[in-house]
Simulated scan of single mutants.
Amino acid sequence: MNSLPLVIFDCDGVLVDSERLVQDIDMRMIGGLGWNITRQEILEQHLGRSEDAVMANIARRIGRPVPEDFPQCRRSAYEQDFKDHLKEVSGVRQAVQELHGVGHDTCVASSGSHATMRLTLGKTGLRTLFEGRIFSADEVAHGKPAPDLFLHAAEQMGYRPERCVVVEDSPSGVAAALSAGMAVVGYSALTPEVAYTSVGSVGLTHLRLGLLLALVLLEDVFDFFAGLF
């Protein structure tokens, strides 16, 4: 087994710069259902959650079931906008390559479907960095903030939870990782740092340098605790 921690990346907002596009579409489409949702409400109630959880929350807020075709229309709007405008998060490609260069294993664990990640990671050219190591909430019973997805990814990669570091941009993802017994690095390009440092994580804003520095600190912690047993 690799003696270095496994680094598990969330996808949307961490690898691909999709959150701005998603928020614009959701404000327009959910607003059309009668809830004039704000960016702050999206952050607090939807960021990092599965589609089923989001649809259930919308239904609660508007007081009726979401139209049957709404999820597919929303996915189609995402797909078109991603094809036209999606980019990778600045610095992330170099961060992943440097992690591989020093010996870290990496994978992706996202609330998004495999179909969505084929589009987003394929469009940005990041898929080749993670081929065969991409895990979706579709594979587990409970999505974030439950720990199931991260535990599944760690098991498939052959790592114990305490030997994993998760890079997340959502409070629900941070909570999921901590519940799984994993260290967490919070990426705060769009998410206010207070939103997840209050849950518990190491925060960073510049992905490449911040990630590597945070991992150095976390490896020192791992080494310290390993010496106690």
Rank of each mutant, 00 (worst) to 15 (best):
G125A: 03
F9K: 06
N57P: 01
L43I: 12
L6R: 08
Y187G: 13
A226R: 13
P192N: 03
T106K: 09
E162P: 04
G101D: 14
E41Y: 02
V22D: 10
L151K: 07
V167H: 03
E44I: 04
R60A: 15
K87L: 05
G125V: 01
I58S: 04
D169G: 05
D52K: 15
D223N: 13
V66G: 01
L218R: 05
G143H: 01
I134E: 04
V166A: 01
M1W: 00
L119R: 01
L33C: 10
T124V: 00
Q80G: 13
G158R: 06
Q97F: 05
R160A: 13
P145D: 08
Q97L: 15
Q94K: 14
F224G: 00
V166E: 02
C73D: 14
T120D: 02
L126F: 04
M157W: 03
L215N: 08
F130H: 02
F135V: 09
A189V: 11
Y196Q: 08
S136E: 08
F224W: 05
S50W: 00
H46S: 10
T116S: 11
P147R: 05
A115Y: 00
L149K: 03
N57W: 09
R39V: 05
P171H: 11
I62W: 04
S90H: 09
C107V: 03
D52G: 06
L99N: 09
V22L: 12
Q94W: 02
Q23R: 13
V92Y: 01
P5T: 08
P147F: 07
P5L: 11
V216K: 14
D223A: 14
A183I: 00
C107K: 03
P71V: 05
V184H: 14
P5C: 10
A115I: 06
Q72R: 15
S90F: 01
L217C: 09
V14G: 03
V89M: 14
P147M: 12
L86E: 05
G101P: 10
P192E: 02
T38R: 00
V16S: 07
D220H: 15
D17Q: 00
A175L: 14
